[in-house]
Design a protein around this nucleic acid. Structure first.
Length: 321
RNA sequence: GCUGGGGUAGCUCAGUUGGUAGAGCACGGCCCUGAAAAGGCCGGUGUCGGCAGUUCAUCUCUGCCCCCCAGCA
């Protein structure tokens, strides 16, 4: 029997990390970060990674797993997270999960299909072809090899077209044959889909989601950016900018770096860069919310100045007890 | 004060010879099975600076006024 997971969801800037820290501290827990960007060493400020103080208070896992020039996948995350969970439990502690990467939660709780991982050369070939002939060409080929997948993937969605073709070439089977775990999730009826979501999770879990109003969130995003600026994001972003040729593409896409590139090139002002960062952060929050709204979580409404400590007390005594 | 350019979506702007508007970004919704802070799909946004006039009809033409920018005084 897999151990029970206590999960605190929330978008970027929602305050989920602080809440998770407060609850874990009360209950003798440790935190497994569910975040695709915090796994990279040296990317600390823009990712709002837990610092030495937080880590001293509560044990943290799945941070700083790889160098920025290494690749990292959802499957890598699942392996690392499962090892961390076992480690925590073996020491008699409670595993808490917190972070903003919805896909990683799904991979851990519902599983990924058994299949081949990424093949860089193959992907490069498909991408080159898409650049030449357009992504529609890949879609046409997929229609022949795997009509089921082609029906679900939009002709413009290069990422998924490449993955589907990759699996087809590597296994000789269609990706739609492999992807059986989430089939109910693709049902046309919304109610059926909602019910299917995490219907048979790989771990038992209790999930709580922080909910805030948009105006509150917008204000918190501004504060977050101010804090990052004061903490020296400029230096960190400049480092990423200077190493952009060697850094792998995932961290290069993180919110908080690419927004500064035009500024470093001299084409924009610092203020314009911060403005862009605010936009990008808001877009991220919206995308996260779209996922999280569908997760089977108990909602916890937080107002602008509501006491995090009381909420932590309450959660420790009730839902997470 | 004069001359020229300009005032159209939250922002930057486009708008063919008059038929009451459109693109990017922003904003909002959705999709998502090994790159996911990524990638894709969909959707509005509006006293077209104001007031008169010409016209069947004006963002588009005319007049006056207001505001912004540049140059000259």
């Amino acid at each position: 029997m897999n151990p029970m997971l206590r999960i605190i969801l929330g978008s970027t800037a929602s305050g989920k990390e602080r809440l998770a820290l407060a609850v874990a501290e009360r209950m003798g827990g440790e935190i497994v970060s569910v975040d695709s960007m915090k796994v990279y060493r040296g990317l600390d400020i823009a990712t709002a990674k837990a610092g030495p103080d937080e880590r001293a208070r509560v044990g943290h896992h799945c941070l700083d797993l790889v160098e920025p020039n290494q690749t990292f996948s959802a499957a890598d995350f699942v392996r690392a997270a499962e090892a961390a969970i076992q480690d925590i439990v073996s020491r008699g502690k409670l595993p808490f999960l917190s972070g903003g990467t919805a896909f990683y939660y799904k991979a851990l709780l519902e599983g990924l299909f058994e299949g081949p991982g990424a093949d860089a050369d193959l992907r490069a070939r498909f991408e080159a072809r898409a650049a030449e002939e357009g992504s529609e060409a890949l879609h046409r080929e997929l229609s022949e090899r795997d009509p089921g997948a082609a029906a679900k993937i939009h002709p413009s969605d290069l990422r998924r077209l490449v993955r589907a073709l990759e699996v087809s070439y590597l296994t000789g089977e269609s990706i739609s044959r492999h992807q059986t775990q989430w089939t109910a999730f693709h049902a046309d009826d919304p109610a059926e889909r909602a019910a299917a979501f995490f219907a048979r999770p790989r771990y038992p879990f209790v999930m709580v989601r922080i909910v805030r109003g948009r105006p509150d969130l917008h204000r918190r995003i501004r504060d977050r950016i101010d804090r990052m600026a004061a903490a020296g994001v400029e230096r960190e972003a400049r480092m990423v900018f200077e190493q952009r040729e060697t850094i792998s593409r995932t961290p290069l896409q993180a919110v908080g770096y690419k927004e500064f590139f035009p500024y470093f090139r001299g084409g924009e002002t610092w203020e314009q860069a911060l403005e862009k960062l605010a936009f990008a952060t808001n877009r991220l929050v919206r995308k996260q919310d779209t996922w999280f709204r569908k997760f089977p979580a108990r909602e916890v409404a937080l107002a602008a100045d509501s006491g995090m400590e009381e909420v932590a007390d309450d959660l420790a005594r009730t839902v997470f007890a």
